[in-house]
Write a protein that binds this DNA or RNA. Structure first.
Length: 690
DNA sequence: AAAAAAT
């Protein structure tokens, strides 16, 4: 085999090389036919999928670029799943491999293996990889669940129950992949800021938490990626979750984005996957174009799915494990082609995954690890039926047979029920909020009446020295407004004053959003005016200041928004314009500020006190008190199951300090008592904030 | 009022 190709044949590079090597056309010659319908005709090997007669003859770089643009590269931190892989990553030599590698399929056997054994002259990295894999196939491993049906396919690393390779062995280094995956992202992580975050675990036989990554036995591959990623020290959620997951326990964790929870589940899951190696295809496999991932991660939004996938790619570096991501809004055919290249860990949004399952593209029989990320949000978005269908009606190993991890910012009854159904003897973990609890975000609340908002904003922006071009990416400011129209208007206002500003909201096209984010991220327009579209999940380093020009309707959204700054332990500031319209936030906002040890404006405190004792209806909107934190209901009041009447199913929860005892804040007393406090904040100078 | 998710 070609040395050069082999040298580059690490898992990641193989994945990269493979990405564009597939023809972008459909086998039928242009017209799209869903894969599940393509199986019908004329293939003598019934369990072999169609497409064996595909002989891609050309390749268009441009189409790939276009696809990338459509997919919204740049969203979600790492950009689209293909960013950096297409036009940048490859040279023409790679394309040269294309023709040769695909001329082989007439016999209808698994083309990947065939490719391997076939045209030896090709420098196809994927096939070289497999070829090198063959060396390991002589090492039998016995920790398989089942090897029935594997015999026929024993040559294929994906199928062979006995002939698989040693997945704990790192594949060759690849500097280009290293740079792409790990390079140039080192933001000075302030780990000390994480130390304050409290973690609480409950359940049976809780494994001892770790304090360093060395405290737990990890494979070389994982250790190497941890080092390359610069994760010197585990975050609090990682310290607890990693040993729990390694101990094969189910886990219900209340933790938010930004706490390091993605790595907290990827590290132990992938480590176990490397240690136990691939599984054989299930006996009644549906053809070789169907993938049987070993692990499944469900996430509510495609940005989040993309971010998890990008993280998974890091921990997949130098491994034989292939992650994949599927989500709506972008070409399903492309995603299916990507799946064809193998999928051991699948990250997905529920809708697109259901689609893939119905098409017979994915089988969950081998899925030994299930992660529900941001479970509460998925339920909020109405995904519960789909999630239940995916988990309970698709031959996934049952609760207890698989390992299941749920992450959720909150733990309302609906989530508890889901936990009861999906988890077995789980450990319950609560992680304090990053950002509020750890004090790396300075939160300022200012009283600003609506007509004064623009003027205050200008004060803030001028104080930030944004117009200095040298300020660059070091002083990004994110301004949240309530409505799309408001975003347009505010952008126009600032633009007219020559501020370097752009905006993003849901009415913008994907391309416009992407462009705006890109310009913001790079500091070309260090001011971004945004609606709630940018409130969650966006991971842009170096946002120094978040301004809530309009406060959101609930504190949960507020926490997400201010969490756009102070990422990964860096310091940030969040300034919020508050006025009588935001009364409903008082109680929770005060609790949050107190909990986060932030300064509490006197007028706000007065409102809080006033609200607790004042007239008006006694009860607050109620469920708000349980928005954050959570309690392991199994420990409370006789351990009754969720769904029974134990009183409010989710209590103020974490440390008891949050959102506490439900003092009402009625809506009827909105004038005189607050007006007095306006004065101090209404003089239009930098003195605005107490 | 806005946003997200399968066409």
């Amino acid at each position: 085999m070609s040395n050069a190709a082999n040298q580059n044949g690490s898992g990641l590079e193989q994945q990269i090389a493979g990405l564009d090597l597939q023809d972008s056309r459909q086998p039928s010659g242009g017209r799209y036919i869903p894969p599940h319908l393509r199986n019908k005709p004329a293939n003598s090997f019934s369990d072999c999928p169609p497409g064996n007669d595909r002989i891609p003859s050309s390749h268009s770089r441009f189409s790939d670029r276009d696809r990338d643009r459509d997919r919204g590269r740049g969203l979600g931190g790492g950009g689209s799943s293909y960013s950096g892989i297409d036009s940048r990553g490859r040279n023409d030599a790679d394309f040269g491999n294309f023709g040769g590698r695909n001329r082989r399929q007439e016999n209808g056997r698994d083309y990947r293996y065939e490719r391997d054994g076939g045209q030896g002259g090709g420098s196809d990295r994927w096939s070289d990889q497999l070829r090198s894999n063959d060396r390991w196939q002589e090492q039998p491993r016995n920790d398989r669940m089942s090897s029935s049906g594997g015999g026929r396919w024993k040559d294929d690393d994906r199928r062979g129950g006995k002939s698989d390779i040693d997945w704990t062995m790192p594949t060759a280094r690849d500097e280009r992949a290293e740079v792409e995956l790990f390079g140039a992202r080192s933001t000075g992580i302030n780990f000390n800021k994480y130390e304050d975050i409290p973690v609480d675990a409950s359940g049976d036989n809780i494994p001892q938490h770790i304090t360093t990554f060395d405290d737990v036995k990890l494979t070389e591959i994982i250790k190497n990626s941890i080092n390359l990623a610069g994760y010197n020290q585990p975050t609090p959620v990682q310290k607890y979750a990693i040993p729990i997951i390694i101990a094969r326990r189910d886990l219900m964790a209340c933790a938010q984005t930004g706490s390091g929870k993605t790595a907290a589940f990827l590290v132990p899951i992938l480590n176990q996957i490397y240690e136990s190696g691939p599984l054989p295809m299930p006996p009644s496999c549906g053809g070789r174009r169907k993938q049987y991932p070993l692990g499944l991660v469900l996430a509510p939004t495609r940005e989040l799915a993309t971010q998890i996938y990008e993280e998974a790619r890091k921990f997949a570096y130098r491994s034989r494990m292939r992650p994949a991501v599927v989500y709506g809004g972008s070409s399903i055919t492309e995603q299916m082609r990507d799946l064809d290249r193998g999928c051991h860990l699948l990250v997905a949004t529920p809708g697109r995954l259901s689609d893939m399952l119905e098409r017979g593209k994915i089988g969950l029989q081998n899925c030994r690890y299930l992660v529900l990320d941001e479970a509460d949000r998925m339920l909020d978005m109405g995904f519960e039926p789909q999630i239940r269908k995916i988990v309970q009606e698709n031959n996934m190993p049952r609760t207890g047979e698989r390992q299941t991890l749920m992450f959720s910012a909150t733990f309302p009854e609906q989530i508890q029920v889901l936990a009861r159904d999906f988890l077995s003897n789980y450990i319950f973990l609560t992680v304090g909020r990053v950002g509020s609890t750890s004090e790396n975000i300075t939160q300022k609340i200012v009283w600003v009446d609506d007509p004064d908002k623009r003027s205050y904003l200008l004060d803030l922006l001028e104080a930030t020295d944004l117009q200095n071009p040298k300020a660059g990416a070091g002083s990004l400011t994110l301004v949240f407004v309530e409505t799309k129209k408001g975003a347009d208007m505010l952008e126009q206002f600032l633009y007219n004053l020559n501020f370097p500003v752009t905006s993003i909201h849901g009415d913008r096209s994907q391309a416009e959003r992407e462009e705006a984010l890109q310009n913001f991220r790079e500091g070309n327009t260090p001011i971004l005016v945004a609606t709630a579209v940018a409130g969650r999940g966006l991971d842009i380093p170096h946002i120094k200041h978040v301004i809530n020009f309009d406060l959101p309707g609930d504190v949960e959204e507020y926490v997400h928004r201010i969490g756009r700054t102070g990422r990964m332990g860096n310091l940030g500031t969040a300034t919020s314009f508050f006025n009588y319209k935001n009364q409903n936030l008082v109680r929770e906002l005060v609790s949050l500020l107190v909990e986060a040890n932030q300064e509490l404006p006197q007028w706000l405190e007065s409102m809080y006190v006033e609200g607790r004792h004042g007239g008006g209806s006694r009860r607050p909107p109620a469920k708000s008190s349980s928005r954050f934190g959570a309690k392991d209901y199994r420990q409370s009041s006789g351990g009754g199951p969720p769904g029974r009447s134990n009183g409010p199913s989710s209590r103020p929860g974490y440390g008891g300090s949050y959102g506490g005892g439900g003092g009402g804040y009625g809506g009827n007393h909105n004038n005189s008592s607050y007006n007095s406090s306006n004065n101090s904040s209404n003089n239009g100078s930098v003195d605005w904030w107490q």
